[in-house]
Amino acid sequence: MSGDELERKLGGNMLIRKNVVKAGEKTIASLAVILLSTLVISGCANKKPPVTSGTGTSAMIQGDDFSKHLEVHNADLAKRLFISSVKSRTSNGLLEVNLQLTSRYEKSQKLQYHFNWFDADGFVIEARKTPWKPLELHGQQSTTLRGLAPNINVSSFNVYVREIPEKAYKY
């Protein structure tokens, strides 16, 4: 081994040692940052309101082609969920709606769905009285949701599907 080589090696070692010390400082600093940010997130992140948009149809009259009325407000949900058909008919004088809902996701989804009913003039009927109904959709499952108009004056409807916010959010 020549002197030059030895020097280079030593120099290299010292450089490495310096780097190690710097790296150590950096690790502590980054750890502190991570710790802080996790605490901030866990403590305060749920101040954000939950995402409550979903997918659904705008008001459609009996016999309309549903695809014209399909509305997607939540692209993430739309990737996992797919409304494949909406059918309606009149039974016992009341408008009955069937909605075919298919999951494109391999895991279970906790959803809620809601129907709105309108009369022939487009006025809402029984506003805010039709409840959101909970629905668990298993992976890749296809299911049919049924809605029944609250009275005989209903001539059009819309339907909306969204997720159930699982955490307690502070608005």
Binding site: W132, K133, L148
Partner: peptide, 29 residues
């Protein structure tokens, strides 16, 4: 008042609304 409520496991407003709506629909149909 009509959104799905999951505060605890006891019988809640969503259960009441679901039961009432499904029974009424079934009877009327």
């Amino acid at each position: 008042a009509t959104a799905v409520e999951t505060t605890d496991i006891n019988f809640g407003s969503t259960d009441l609304q679901k039961v009432a709506a499904e029974m009424t629909d079934s009877l009327l149909l």
